[in-house]
Amino acid sequence: MKKLVLTGAAGRLGSYLREPLTRMCDELVSTDIVADIGKLYDGESYVQADLTDLAAMEAIVKDATMVVHFGAIGDEAPWDDILRSNIIGAYNVWEAAYRQGVKRVVYASSVHAVGMHLKTDTIGLDAPHRPDTYYGLAKCFAEDLASLYWDKRGIESVCMRIFSCAQATNARSIGTWLSYDDLIHLVERSIDSAVVGFTKVWGLSNNDRAVVDNSKAGHLGFRPKDNAEQFAKDVFAKTPPLDNKDLANLCIGGPFATVELGNSGVAALGVVNDKKTT
């Protein structure tokens, strides 16, 4: 295709998407709030912009076929911060896409939209929203926004409910890991599938201990290859016995299910910042 836009290009996940996306289009426009993201790939340009600026979003998505929307606060945070970046920012992306005739938004949603469901429920994609934080609530809003803009304005969306896209370093991640290669594969299938309408899909690898059912998203052709079982022995050997009454162990949102609203959930996960550098 001619032009793709990637928001959140300066983030850890965005860093792994930039190069693969340049191979899917003539022009990749990467954007984030930082002044610079370093060396650019062939076919990539960078525009500094704030998601809360609708006019800036309109200018960036002009003539784009699709937007890959990863820009947002990637953790639980105070309400006013979530409102601006994750809720108003999401509205501005879809509204700009509508005004400029963009075909599809590929959105980095999250398990935290349904994080209070129990692991043992093995929920499907049709399970009701049950957010675990303000962060998760914003993901619910964006998913419903995507559904509305498909029903009323014809903008297709794929909402990728990403679990643990980071190194598998804790017991929870053995069931929830999404490798970077599988993330790239998921985004590629979300872009090159001919018709998606409004689609939700779980973003996790082919883990033996997966806690959700992805069967209703088969039309995307997302077939993850990696499996966190390769890390299980070492991770479990270092993990103390889990409290089976602790919601952080029972709910699919993990520690996000127990943090106080407005306080970081990522802090309890030990996420390694292995951001890709060009």
Rank of each mutant, 00 (worst) to 15 (best):
F163N: 06
R223W: 02
K200R: 15
V212S: 07
W202T: 05
W94S: 09
S215I: 00
L178W: 01
D121M: 12
H129I: 06
F163T: 02
D208L: 10
Y98I: 11
T239Y: 04
D151C: 04
P224I: 10
V106C: 03
D144C: 07
A166W: 10
L137N: 11
P128S: 09
V158Y: 06
V106G: 02
A210T: 12
L137H: 11
H129Y: 15
N214G: 06
R99L: 12
G203M: 03
T239R: 08
H129E: 13
L183K: 04
T239K: 10
T176P: 02
A127E: 03
T176M: 13
Y135S: 10
K119V: 02
G101Y: 03
L186I: 04
M160H: 04
M116G: 00
G221C: 04
G175D: 08
S147A: 14
T133R: 15
C140Q: 11
Y180T: 12
E156T: 11
P224G: 12
I123W: 04
K119M: 12
A210G: 13
V106M: 00
D151Q: 14
D151V: 06
P128N: 06
K238D: 11
R161N: 10
H112K: 08
S109H: 07
L137T: 15
K103S: 15
N227P: 02
H185W: 00
V187R: 06
H129C: 14
K103W: 04
L204C: 08
F236H: 02
E95H: 13
V212P: 10
G124S: 12
I191K: 03
C165V: 11
M160T: 01
H219E: 05
F236P: 02
H112G: 07
V235I: 15
N170K: 14
A210D: 01
D132T: 09
W94M: 14
A108R: 09
A146S: 13
G197A: 10
K238W: 00
S147V: 03
L183V: 05
A96P: 11
N207G: 06
R104F: 00
I174P: 09
G203K: 05
R172T: 07
Q230L: 12
P240V: 08
R130Q: 14
A127G: 09
C140M: 10
L145S: 09
V235R: 00
P131I: 01
D234N: 09
W94Y: 15
D132H: 00
A142Y: 05
T169W: 04
H129T: 11
D226R: 00
W202M: 01
P131D: 09
D181T: 11
A138R: 11
Q167R: 13
P131Y: 06
D226V: 03
A168F: 01
E143N: 05
S109M: 02
D192L: 14
S157Q: 07
V212I: 07
Q100V: 04
W150Y: 15
H117W: 13
P131R: 10
R99T: 04
Y149N: 05
A142M: 12
S109V: 05
P241E: 14
R161H: 01
A217V: 03
M160I: 13
I123D: 04
Y98T: 08
R223Y: 08
I155C: 08
S193H: 13
F222P: 10
D181M: 01
S179A: 00
S173W: 02
T239P: 10
P128Y: 01
K216Y: 03
P241D: 11
S193T: 15
V235D: 05
D234G: 14
S193M: 03
G221Y: 01
R153I: 00
